[in-house]
Design a protein around this nucleic acid. Structure first.
Lengths: 201, 201
DNA sequence: TGCCAGTTGACACTCAGTGCCACAATGCTA
DNA sequence: TAGCATTGTGGCACTGAGTGTCAACTGGCA
């Protein structure tokens, strides 16, 4: 075992690795957007990135994963926000802040989201995978909501309803061309759902 | 073109067809339960059902579909109930009746659901597909809720929250060994969510 | 310079899913 | 009951995802 930790991007080796990964993801997305997910093979991606097919699978466990870089980053950001409540803040308030921040990220990446959504809507296999991210967000929200000491069951219930409702809000925003006020729509939905959060323990 | 319509199960041919399909599904589930979804190949299923591999794919478009017969039937039953509101009934009431009926189906199929869930929990690829059924249920609920003439947006929002919350309720029921009162938990959740439904148009 | 560890490419393999064609079973009709 | 069209089935070959393995290469370090 070497003394160097894994993510310590100092060496040339690590920089090359990061570059390969980034190139693969970029090239893959470009191909998906151009031809649709199903019409692009891993061979195509590997060839376009000047890498062997085998190498592609060293960076991404499945073809789908080359598409979901954004979602992974989004979830990570959400979890980070949820894990850092302000002192004395009610759990629902923390959740609201985190989700509002998420909506602002969405608005900022408007173009990319629209492009991705076009690919997503045309390939059901991607849609299925996409829903899994919601499940993970749900767990994170449930943990955050339960922090106040209320019932854990109730926290999960509220998290489920929030995720379910916000997915609809985001979809409507996208279907409307991503021109509406996503933040406002999201906050309206959260207002309606606030009563679901567990009472203070 | 023959005069006979497609589903007219009178002839020997149709009975054989139905039997093959049923045998494939039964055999497939048995194998999935015994070894796990990933450890069973389509060849295994076909062989166990005394049918060629090619024939399997004439009955089920994917291996997953041999697992989700129940879900398909469930969704169909849900849609049927939603499509038949009682005269003068508020949309939310129709939805509640349909979902209560669904919960009773769940309780009645307790054993099978537990067995299926064991398979499901052990194979993420199935879980992803499973979530797609929720999406379809969501659309059906949204249509039913919008029937009152209220805002369509609001109806979809409520449908999203309901589906999100009820999935959590069902999961908790299953995780608890399917011994709790699912109907009561579901109704409690619906009580909390009733305010989300669009106001009367 | 030479060793070590990690990265890559090439090859072979399994398995899901599809198109195609020949064959057999079924149902209808003469 | 013989003959016909229809339709289900099996076999085969093919594409594409994903994995294991091994030899060759490259960066880091002494």
């Amino acid at each position: 075992m070497t003394a160097r930790a894994e993510g310590e991007q100092g060496g040339l080796r690590d920089r090359k690795k990061a570059a390969s990964r980034e190139a693969l993801e970029r090239v893959a997305k470009a191909l998906f957007h151009a031809r649709g997910f199903g019409a692009v093979t891993v061979d195509d991606i590997a060839a376009a990135a000047n890498v062997s097919r085998r190498t592609f699978f060293r960076y991404f466990p499945t073809k789908e994963d080359a598409f979901f870089g954004r979602r992974a980053a989004q979830l990570e950001a959400l979890c980070a926000l949820l894990a850092a409540p302000r002192p004395g803040e009610r759990p629902f308030r923390t959740v609201r802040r985190a989700l509002v921040a998420l909506s602002e990220q969405h608005v900022a990446s408007r173009e990319e989201i629209l492009r991705e959504h076009r690919v997503l809507a045309a390939s059901p296999e991607l849609l299925a995978k996409d829903l899994e991210w919601d499940r993970r967000a749900l767990s994170a929200l449930a943990v955050a909501l339960a922090r106040g000491g209320g019932e854990a069951r109730r926290a999960r219930l509220a998290a489920g309803a929030i995720v379910g409702a916000l997915r609809v809000v985001i979809e409507e925003w996208i279907d409307g061309g991503a021109v509406g006020d996503l933040r406002a729509s999201g906050e309206d939905a959260l207002d309606l759902l606030e009563g679901l959060a567990p009472a203070r323990g």
